[in-house]
Design a protein around this nucleic acid. Sequence first.
DNA 1: CGAGCGATTGAAAAGACTCAACCACCGTGG
DNA 2: CCACGGTGGTTGAGTCTTTTCAATCGCTCG
Lengths: 229, 229
Amino acid sequence: MLEKSHRHVSCETCGARKDSLFGSFCEADSSNLNEHKTCNYFKKNQPLFIEGSNPRGVFCLNEGKVKIFTRGEEGKEQIIHIAKPGEIVGFRAMFSGEAYKVAATTLEECNICFINKADFLNMVDTNPVLRNGIMRELSKELADRATFITNMAQKSVRERLAFALVLLDDIYSQEMINLTREDLANFVGTATETLIRLLKEFKDDHLIETHARKIEILDKQGLMNLAGV
Amino acid sequence: MLEKSHRHVSCETCGARKDSLFGSFCEADSSNLNEHKTCNYFKKNQPLFIEGSNPRGVFCLNEGKVKIFTRGEEGKEQIIHIAKPGEIVGFRAMFSGEAYKVAATTLEECNICFINKADFLNMVDTNPVLRNGIMRELSKELADRATFITNMAQKSVRERLAFALVLLDDIYSQEMINLTREDLANFVGTATETLIRLLKEFKDDHLIETHARKIEILDKQGLMNLAGV
DNA sequence: CGAGCGATTGAAAAGACTCAACCACCGTGG
DNA sequence: CCACGGTGGTTGAGTCTTTTCAATCGCTCG
C-alpha cells in the first residue's frame, strides 16, 4: 500500500520502469535518470498540470492512475486517456513548444516521479532508442485517437460504454474499475444519468456486476460483441 | 491547372515545400530529397493507401487535397483530416511499426511525390531539424485530436458543422469548399440527410451560400460563434 | 436518351439529454 | 454516539435532437 507521504523510488529497481519508455535503459542510463528525477506523493484528485499552463517536465507514474482530459465549452471534462503505472505523462507538450492543451489529474493516491524538461529533452537527444520509442508511442496514440474519434462519431452510447469498460478492464487489470459515475460518463462521452441507466441494463444482462461504485466485468466477450470489436 | 498526367516537380523549386516539414531544408538537402522522390499523378478518388496495408513510404502533396479517414463497423467513413498541398501524408505509420490504421484517398486530381520508407527514415535519422519538426507535428496533431474527440462528444451536430466549415474554409483558402455531402457528413460525424437540413438552415441564416455542391462562407465570425470558439 | 449517383425532402421513430426529485453513504462536529 | 450537511448515485418524466427509411428530383456521363 501507499504511504501517505513522499516515498522515494529508485529508477534502477523501479518495477514500473520496465514497462515504460525507459524500459530499455541500461544501468548507466537508469542511474543517470535516477539522479535527475524527483519523487512525489500526490493525493487523490490532485492536478499534475492544467490546460494552458507551460510544461516544465514529464511525469512518470510509479503507482496510481491519472486521467488526461480536455474541457468543452461549459467546462465539462472529456477524458481522453487514463494512464497507469509505467506510463509517462505530459511528454507530448515537450515537443510541441506550446502550452498544455490537456490537463492531468490523479484518480487515486499516486506516487509520481518528475523529470525536468531540459534533462528529459537531453536524454531524448542523446538516446536514439528512447527517441524511437517516443516517436513510436506518439504515432500509436495518433492512431488510437483516430479510432476514438470514429467511435464517438458512429457508435451509440451503449456501444461506447461497452468499449470503454473493456478498455478500462485492461487498465485496471487486477483491480475492479473504480471511477465516479461522472468520470466514467466523461470518458464515454455521455450524461451521468444515461450512463447509470445503461450500467443497470448491463447488470440485468449479466455483463457486469457493481459493488458500490466498483464495476466487475463478468462477460468481457459479451461486452466486446456489444461494442463491435 | 493540372495536366492529366504525370508531372515532374523539382524539390528545389517546389512551391509547396516551403510550407512543409521539408521547408527548412538547405539546397543540398533539397537536391538530395529530389533525387530520392518520385512524382506521380493521381486521379480523383484514387487511394494513396488503405487501412491494413503496410507503409512503404510517405506522400508529399504538391497539388490537390486528400482525405484521411478510418472506417467504423459498417464501413462508414469517418474523415479525420483533410490534407492540402505542403502536407506530408502517411509518416505516422513510418514510426509505429504497424500497418496503416487509417486510409488516404484523393478528393481531387492530385500531384503527389513519394519518398521511399528507407530514404525517409534515413533523412529523419540524420537531420535533427527535420526530426524535431516531425516530433512537433506529431505532438500538435495529438492535441488537435483531443479537441476533435471533445467536440464529437460534447457539441451538437449543428455546432460541429459550423466548426467544420470554419476549418474547411482555411483548408480551401482561396477556393470554395468542394466536397460531396456524404464526405462532409463523414467529416462532421452525422447522417447525410441531417447535414443537408442544417446546411439549409445556415443558408436561411445567411451564414453560407451554396453554388451547386460548392459552399461559400458568408459570415465566418457567425459560424465561429455558433461553433463556440 | 436512359441509367445512376448525388442531393433533397418528408414523416415517423428512436436515442439521448435535461430537469427535478430523492436516496445513500460518509465524514464532521456537537 | 448521533444528527447534519454534502457529495455522489439513482430514478422518473418529458422534450428535443438526430436518425432512419422511403421517395423524389436533377444532373452528368456514356
